[in-house]
């Protein structure tokens, strides 16, 4: 997987987080995901169809999810991940992916990419596979906590 397909997603997380008023979004290492374990309890996953095909997931701890959602809702306290909160999480995934797709269209080979509806998965000790091919995992350190971005594209 070429790094040019990765950067748009990371830039997009930074961009959207900054719009919500978070200041720190630092990129950690990019690694190939050999282990299917996700060390987080909340995952938003969005599919991509078109010249770029695959899934992208954004994983965070419950606390991080609550902090982000609260900011999205103008500082309203979020006690639990109820329907409203999950809807906000799916919107968060939509916003990041939408912005990333706009960035991806700058790549010459990419003419059309369409996102699919996000799903939210939560639980403990989650293992997942999001693509038949290799998945890259990138940790982003933010002032809301760690966000693990998993990018699994069939290319």
């Amino acid at each position: 997987m070429d790094v040019k397909y990765i950067t748009p997603f990371l830039d997009s997380v930074k961009n959207i987080m900054e719009q919500f008023g978070f200041e720190k979004v630092e990129r950690g290492s990019i690694r190939k995901k050999d282990n299917m374990n996700v060390d987080m309890d909340t995952i938003s996953i969005v599919g991509l169809v078109g010249d770029v095909k695959g899934n992208v997931s954004y994983a965070f701890s419950e606390e991080t999810a609550k902090t982000i959602i609260s900011k999205m809702m103008m500082g309203m306290p979020v006690e639990e991940l109820d329907e409203m909160a999950r809807s906000a999480m799916s919107e968060f995934a939509n916003m990041i992916t939408g912005t990333a797709i706009a960035n991806l269209s700058g790549i010459e080979e990419v003419n059309e990419v369409t996102p699919t509806p996000p799903s939210i998965i939560y639980g403990k000790e989650i293992y997942m596979i999001i693509t038949p091919m290799e998945t890259l995992a990138i940790d982003l350190e933010t002032d809301a906590g760690k966000i693990e971005v998993n990018i699994g594209l069939e290319m």
Binding site: I43, I45, G47, N55, S57, E83, R86, S87, M89, S90, P117, P118, S119, I120, I121, Y122, G123, K124, E125, I126, Y127, M128, I129, I130, T131
Partner: peptide, 13 residues
């Protein structure tokens, strides 16, 4: 995509 884990809940808002 495939998921497994403890008390996994799946939602499509």
């Amino acid at each position: 995509a495939v998921f497994t884990g403890k008390n996994v809940i799946i939602s499509i808002p």
